[in-house]
Nucleic acid binder design. Structure first.
Lengths: 143, 143
DNA sequence: ACTTAACTTTTGCATTTGCAAATGTTGTTT
DNA sequence: AAACAACATTTGCAAATGCAAAAGTTAAGT
């Protein structure tokens, strides 16, 4: 059995991810938001306040990159960045009301994306897809 | 049914893709090769000479970015860049013998990655995974 | 208390990226 | 054959990225 690079999981994963990302980026560009920004807003909207480190983990963006991205988002009034006095080495990020509204709007679009994406796929198969993607994430630790 | 961002296909896809990419990047760093470089080598090794445009499509790297990446790879003796006289507006990229050897070596590592990645997954499920990733790619066109 | 270690974020700097415009080539129209 | 459109790649430039080092804060050891 020969190894076919273009049939490998990492290749297909990247391909689908990039294609999807590009589409969504273009779709939300008119809102003045980039894909990483959307991810930040969506995570915060879903689970509330997060430290920078946790957020970095959750949105798969490197810490230093995220730090600067947050600076930009603060400047645009989408999120707040607070150093709590009781523990001044962490930074807490949260959405502003404006950011929350925007997040809701964008998540509507994302929902629609998801719908068309899996529209002609088996419900069971989509479940398998999601489960496997999660498992891959765990397996990656062992590599 | 509420929309949970962190359960969405794009999110999980990105997460797995980034995690996998980071690991592999670190794994191959000692060979002086980046992930996009590996992808270029692997595609060329698998399917032979390609135009820059086709290659861009195959490795999911934007044309201008790829153009510069290829310049670097040419300088390092990994690939060749030829403008065929019979059609001088295209550029043909191919691996050098050195590039081919490196590609083989790296693909061994990639094979091993794939093995551990899907080691405790169902064979049938992996097939579904791959199929769905391909279908997602096609569906993306409709978004 | 003082030093050292551990934790979290930010910054410096070089590299990579992506869009738009420019370049060069072929094909088509008149 | 000149002008124009279509095709394929490259380049300019601003923004994003990633690593390593720095900075600031808390915790632990002596």
């Amino acid at each position: 059995m020969v190894y076919r690079f273009t049939d490998s999981v990492p290749y297909l994963l990247n391909r689908a991810g990039v294609a999807l990302g590009e589409r969504f980026t273009r779709r939300i560009a008119s809102y003045g938001v980039t894909l990483p920004m959307y991810r930040v807003l969506a995570v915060l909207r879903q689970s509330g306040t997060k430290t920078l480190g946790d957020l970095s983990e959750l949105v798969s963006v490197e810490l230093s990159t995220l730090s600067r991205l947050i600076s930009l988002m603060v400047k645009r009034g989408l999120v707040t960045r607070i150093r709590p006095p009781e523990n001044a080495r962490i930074v807490l990020i949260d959405v502003t009301p404006k950011g929350a509204d925007l997040a809701d709007e964008l998540m509507q679009i994302a929902m629609h994306f998801e719908d068309t994406l899996i529209s002609n796929l088996d419900k069971d198969q989509v479940d398998i897809l999601k489960t496997l993607l999660c498992q891959i994430n765990q397996q990656v630790e062992k590599l």
